[in-house]
Design a protein around this nucleic acid. Structure first.
Lengths: 183, 183
DNA sequence: ACCTGAACACCGTTCAAGT
DNA sequence: ACCTGAACACCGTTCAAGT
């Protein structure tokens, strides 16, 4: 009797795509390499050959999610609006992929020199001094990381605030306003 | 032949204590209920009777860690210094318990009304308006959450910054300075 | 009431054997 | 080169049986 024919041409990209779909449904905690392999129509060993470890897969998923949300700043874009939009988009994407935030936030090289430059430029365009912009970037980064990584729904009701988007933006505005006040 | 005599008086507090010790050694990811039970000198079933689930145990550990770091503000304390000290202490405690940050940060009721009041008071003492203090608290909370949850070591080298403590404080100062500028 | 020991239903990772 | 199937060494959770 013939063996079940081997599923052909399994690729890293496809694994990441399907994994993200599964994560959107059940969350990172419930993702298993077996279930993922089932959905891929491949064997457990097969997916493990393309992706060395589950942790590595999640890191790849984190990158993919980030790249999906990233939109380079065009000349049309208001600098502050662009920063805000980038963060809000990423936030929404992460909310629909429960448990993924850690794997985006803990990936230092996602913050490319180009991104740093673009944000810095936006902040200076918005009236911050160079030193203020440096500090603002630091705070902005970790503030965003905090919001992304925290289950905001639960925390909002505790803080008595209305909806996540509003809160997120309010914080960003405080940070930007703050630096801009100096002139 | 007699059964091994049952270990007596296992308590929730002891479980949390030993768990935190183990986490300090191996991190949350490597903590297993079996290893924990071994160290407690109890059986797996025994510890599971006091703590319904591993997730629940980690939540308890998060609380415990937070409570260890919390020191109420005395009349001697400079308000801003107090806020800074609270955050830095917690930061250090979390660094020595890898993986625990999530379980501290995602626990809304840890932010008690008393704590909110104390921070708010400190901020106003420091010269912020009430509205500014509200915003500052929001940013402060998530900024801290971001720092706590992020593996700062890796990110620091990426950001070209010196040591975590300095960076942490720099951010806090930016946030506080910002609000204070208004008058 | 509280503990033990064993079972259950899963995991992630590895690897010979196949094509 | 790439896949399958099975094994290995773990997990967390549950629960009868003991004291």
């Amino acid at each position: 009797m013939a063996r079940p024919k081997a599923r052909a041409s399994l690729s890293k990209d496809e694994i990441v795509d399907v994994a993200l779909g599964l994560i959107a449904e059940v969350g990172v905690d419930q993702l298993s390499m077996r279930q993922l392999s089932d959905r891929l129509g491949a064997s457990l060993g097969a997916t493990n050959r393309h992706v060395p470890t589950k942790e590595a897969l999640l890191a790849l998923c984190g990158r993919a999610l980030y790249e999906r949300s990233y939109r380079p700043r065009g000349p049309e874009d208001d600098p502050l609006d662009w920063v805000r939009e980038q963060l809000v988009t990423l936030h929404e994407l992460l909310i629909s992929h429960p448990g993924m935030a850690t794997y985006v936030v803990n990936q230092p090289d996602l913050v490319t020199p180009e991104l740093v430059a673009a944000v810095q430029e936006s902040l200076i365009d918005a009236g911050l001094s160079e030193a203020e912009a440096d500090a603002a970037r630091l705070v902005l980064y970790f503030y965003s990381a905090g919001v992304l990584v925290t289950d905001s729904a639960a925390l909002l009701s505790a803080a008595g605030l209305s909806d996540p988007g509003v809160m997120f933006t309010a914080g960003i505005d405080y940070i930007l306003r703050a630096g801009a006040r100096v002139h």
